[in-house]
């Protein structure tokens, strides 16, 4: 499934993979429930490590980071493996997303 707006695209059409691109600056963590439902659904259905590719995500505000953290905590509870692919030329990704490993030591983060 693909969610496409003027600002961002979330694509979960490939099994065990989700990609998010564009700019996500929604007003609250709750407002991410609908677009991030694709990640949650992919996590429920995954047959292997779920890879979330963020390399084309230019901006994600603190509400979005909190929502992503909620999904990581859920993956830990469900004992599902999860991997984030991040872009080392986007400064906030390097700084913010590496901290998410503190939520779950098994979270795999690949920086490219």
């Amino acid at each position: 499934m693909i969610i496409k707006t003027d600002d961002y695209i979330i694509d979960s059409s490939i099994l065990n993979e989700v990609s998010i691109s564009g700019s996500m600056r929604l007003p609250s963590p709750l407002s991410y429930d609908q677009p991030f439902s694709l990640i949650k659904k992919s996590l429920e259905n995954c047959t292997d490590t779920l890879t979330v590719n963020l390399t084309s995500l230019e901006y994600l505000n603190s509400s979005g980071i909190t929502s992503l953290a909620r999904i990581i905590i859920q993956a830990r509870k469900d004992n599902k493996d999860m991997k984030l692919i991040i872009n080392n030329s986007i400064p906030w990704q390097q700084k913010t997303l590496l901290s998410l490993k503190q939520l779950w030591e098994k979270l795999d983060i690949e920086s490219i």
């Binding site: 609250s28 963590p29 709750l30 505000n61 603190s62 509400s63 980071i65 909190t66 953290a69 909620r70 905590i73 901290s99 503190q102 939520l103």
Partner: peptide
């Protein structure tokens, strides 16, 4: 990290980490 955990635990409306 604590605020992120609390956000889920108490289903808070705002992230408060900006």
């Amino acid at each position: 990290i604590n605020r992120m955990k609390n956000n889920l635990m108490y289903n808070q409306e705002q992230s408060e980490i900006g």
